[in-house]
Amino acid sequence: MDSGVLPRVDRQLLLYQRWLNERLATIEDPEHRQLLRHFATWHQIRRLRTKAEKGPLGRSQINHTKQEVTQAGAFLAWLAGRGRAIGQCQQADIDAWHTESLATRRPSQSFLRWCMKTGQMPRLTLPPAVITQDSEPLHQNHRLAILRRVLNDDSLPPRARVAAALVLLYARPVSRIVRLTIDGVTDDETTVTVRLGDPPSPLPQPVAALMRAYLQSRQYLPYASSRSSQWLFPGRQPGHPMNPVSLQVHLREIGFPPQRGKTSAIRQLVLQAPAPVIAKALGYHDKTATRLVTEAGGTWSRYAPGDHSQ
């Protein structure tokens, strides 16, 4: 008799569903509440379940999803204050909503696109993403200067130094750095490797020495649950990795902008090797790496495997 196997339930998804029910219960307008429930059920939760099938969801993903619901509800209330329902929304409303606070209200765009796609509101134009200085890549000299400081300044926190080195050398986003485990770091006393993709990436000196020192320092962490955790960057909550937002704060406190550092690093890497090779080694999608080659002005975008001698 085949008893079958129950599908794995993602804890973060369950927590989000609980939060959603509590959040919707606070919305007084029944039409707003129903619309938000449909958006969350048929768009957000479906998307989260698809991602959960590939791996555990992170708290940053759930936090962003919560922001989408919160800002969607705020938009509906704001629009009602202007005397309009969602089906009566006009371009002037969209422009005014984003003009007042673009950064804060941008998460509502996922809801607005869904409303347009499902016929809940007219098809209008949303403001495009604005490229700010925070998203521009670091100049190569600036990137190397930060890397030298991270490797040589013993006054900096070991956790921030290791995380910054992984970003600057291997273009590892903070959201993925916090998901690294101790088992993903191997040390044969000659070479230290970190499993970022396939195969594991070797750490050059003195980054390897920095990683060894960091692993030894974990025994002095203030929380016993953190010292025994298998996460490379354990969080305060037992069994959970560090919150990526918290790690970003630590990196900015030492003067390192993680997003700009990551963009600068990946652009340098794809100029040195074919995009498919970089993508496989670092766990990136090959299309993402190829696009970055083009943006960086490289020639590997025309790379194709096979014999090029003819």
Results as ranks from 00 to 15, higher is better:
P7E: 07
L13N: 04
L13I: 03
R23P: 07
L24N: 07
A25Y: 12
A25L: 08
A25D: 11
A25T: 12
T41K: 12
I45H: 04
R46K: 13
R47W: 03
K51A: 13
K51Y: 11
G55N: 03
Q67T: 06
E68V: 14
A72Q: 02
L76V: 05
L79W: 03
A80C: 06
A80M: 06
A96K: 11
R105E: 02
S110T: 13
M116G: 11
G119K: 06
R123T: 14
R123L: 08
T125A: 13
P127A: 05
V130Q: 13
T132Q: 10
H139W: 02
H139C: 01
Q140H: 14
Q140N: 12
L151G: 01
D153P: 00
D154T: 10
A160S: 09
R161V: 00
A164M: 00
A165W: 02
A165P: 00
A165D: 04
L168Y: 00
L168G: 01
L169P: 02
P173C: 03
I182E: 15
D183I: 05
G184H: 07
T193D: 01
S201N: 10
A208C: 03
S217I: 02
P222T: 01
S226Y: 06
S226K: 03
R227D: 07
R227S: 07
Q237W: 02
H240T: 11
P244I: 07
V245I: 15
S246Y: 11
L251W: 03
R252M: 09
R252C: 03
F256E: 01
P257N: 02
R260M: 05
S264Q: 03
V270D: 09
P274N: 03
P276T: 06
V277T: 09
I278T: 13
A281S: 12
G283T: 05
G283M: 08
H285E: 07
T288P: 04
E295P: 04
E295D: 10
R302Q: 15
